[in-house]
Simulated assay, not measured.
Amino acid sequence: MPAKIIVAATPPDAAADAVALAVDLARARGASLLVAGVAVVPMMADREVFARAQRGAMERELSLLVPHDTDGVEAGIAVVVSRSITRGLHSLAEREHADLLVMGPTHRGTIERVFQGDLILSTLHGSTCPIAVAPAGYADRTSEDRPMMGVAIDGGEESDAVLDAAVTLAEQMGASLRIVHVAETPIGYAVPPWLDAAGSARYLEAVRAEGNAVLQRAEEKVDGRVPVSTKLLSGLPGEELARFGSEVDLLVMGSRAYGTVGRVIVGSTAGRVLHDAPCAVLVLPQTVLSEVPALT
């Protein structure tokens, strides 16, 4: 079955950036493109009546978002009627057997995200396919001859699957790949309080040594499939990876990397990177990673 990418035209002011990223990824992967909109049914409204009233107008709006020049990428539109945007996108992705869902930036501040919810993270929860998020202004960018991709790994059980997915995408896009690892050393409380200055220095040195070993193993597993480099960072993973986004065009990461809490729910690291990184970000949910074979 040919690969299929769904691009969410929600919110409308971010649709152009999402479509531009989706076209780039579809072109590289030989995938078709489906520009989708979700008509949210009011709680007391009849679904069928609402659908008939909304579908025509939404289809006309979506047709305006389909780019005229897609360089051979097959593109269509889809309207989903649902009780929420998240449910609608999930059901459409499952129905179409989508390989990727692309979304635009939400343009929300921290306080607004707390009170109104976070569309990107709520869609990431329970997603059956990877989710890519375009940064603001992506539609206005010009492409480079050889784009730079990044992949964040923590050395955990998901790292090989994340790395393999990133290498495969880099091959398809003709991109160089930079593997990044964050040695978790938050200022103030990373070092156990019972250590003295000398012990603290040894502790931090050990953390960095472990990080370098993680990067070396990852570079060896790439085995020359794409041009590769590595980078070790220190600090809070969310902050450091978001900052690292200025060095790459696309950053690939798992949704549960870094920290105990992040392995239970989609953690703060993924949320911080998705909202603060200046590059496009592709997040691989754990349900997807379990199906990706590890590099050997």
Rank of each mutant, 00 (worst) to 15 (best):
P2N: 12
A3I: 11
K4D: 07
I5M: 12
I6Q: 07
I6F: 06
P11C: 04
P12H: 14
D13F: 14
A14C: 07
L21E: 15
A26P: 11
A26T: 11
S32C: 11
S32E: 11
A39Y: 05
R47T: 08
E48Y: 08
V49M: 14
Q54S: 08
Q54A: 11
M58L: 10
R60D: 08
S63W: 04
D69Y: 11
G72D: 03
E74G: 06
V79Q: 10
V102L: 01
V102G: 00
E112V: 14
V114I: 13
L121M: 13
L121T: 13
T128V: 12
A132L: 14
P135T: 09
S143E: 09
S143I: 05
E144G: 11
V151S: 00
G155Y: 11
D160A: 15
V162F: 12
L163N: 06
A165Y: 12
E171G: 10
E171R: 12
A175Q: 05
L177F: 07
R178C: 01
Y189G: 12
Y189D: 13
A190R: 04
L195M: 10
D196E: 04
A206E: 08
E210I: 07
L215I: 11
R217G: 11
V222S: 00
D223L: 05
R225G: 00
R225W: 02
P227V: 08
T230L: 01
S234V: 10
L241S: 09
A242P: 13
V252T: 06
R256W: 00
V266C: 09
S268Y: 06
S268D: 00
T269P: 04
A270G: 07
H275P: 05
D276Q: 15
P278D: 08
C279G: 06
L282E: 14
L284R: 02
S290M: 12
E291S: 13
V292E: 05
